[in-house]
Write a protein that binds this DNA or RNA. Structure first.
Ligand SMILES: [Zn+2]
Ligand SMILES: [Zn+2]
Ligand SMILES: [Zn+2]
Ligand SMILES: [Zn+2]
Lengths: 118, 118
DNA sequence: CTGCGCATGTGATATTATAACATAACGTAG
DNA sequence: CTACGTTATGTTATAATATCACATGCGCAG
């Protein structure tokens, strides 16, 4: 965990909601000035590899993860109004899987309204 | 259903697997010449609105849909080796949903190996 | 010291998607 | 028929997202 990566993680955590790569980049630039797209994408890739971040596929955005994913992938509940994300896991085995399909990675994202915003 | 939209749908069906918007565009151009990005994106938006196509979020690609989605969203099983997509539905209500969360739309994509490619 | 592996810096470019405005096509009220 | 509103399409440009390719720095094994 290098300073650069730690910094990116800190920004993700601070955001507290899905944040776009280029918004991260802007924040980094405002402190560092030298940050460029590969800087942030590399750090995000690293953080995702080690399980400290997720990409929210349908938003092209990224979030920090403080969960344990031993038991399976993340399941995200994303409020379209306030932007909050509630991450759950232990996402169950796909029951409708075709015969013989071997799942390596699942993307599960639910979009809607959180309890507060209904 | 206009000729343009029908043509885009036909190309999606013919592809038989997830296809990128700009690949569609290339195919359209090879026949029409005048096609441009908004042409294809508008048609895709229309087809998705009426339920004849889906976006595969984690691939930024699109597929035709011949299913009935009365009972819920699509659940995609995508083979990383051969590119085939098996679409299921009746995807179950999220069981881990936070209290009070009201889901409007779900993205469920499983990546792995299909039976043939294992 | 030297060579190697990995992280980062840097400039350019590729890929994906939308904005903004113009034109056409089509039905309907008058 | 003509004028108008609405929807679809054409066209130009640009925004937003992501990667490539190559250079540099940095820590450590030999
Ligand atoms: Zn997580
Ligand atoms: Zn909310
Ligand atoms: Zn479908
Ligand atoms: Zn396969």
């Amino acid at each position: 965990m290098t300073p650069l990566r730690r910094n990116v993680l800190a920004l993700l955590v601070r955001a507290g909601e899905p944040i776009k790569a280029y918004d991260l980049l802007d924040q980094m630039r405002s402190e560092d000035g030298s940050a460029k797209p590969p800087t942030v994408y590399r750090s995000l890739d690293f953080l995702m590899d080690v399980g400290l971040a997720h990409k929210v596929e349908a938003l092209n955005a990224y979030i920090a993860c403080a969960h344990c994913h031993d038991k399976g992938g993340a399941e995200l509940y994303i409020c379209g109004k306030c932007g909050s994300v509630d991450e759950r896991h232990g996402a169950p085995e796909p029951r409708n899987a075709p015969d013989g399909f071997e799942t390596e990675r699942s993307v599960v994202e639910h979009y809607g309204l959180c309890a507060k915003c209904r």
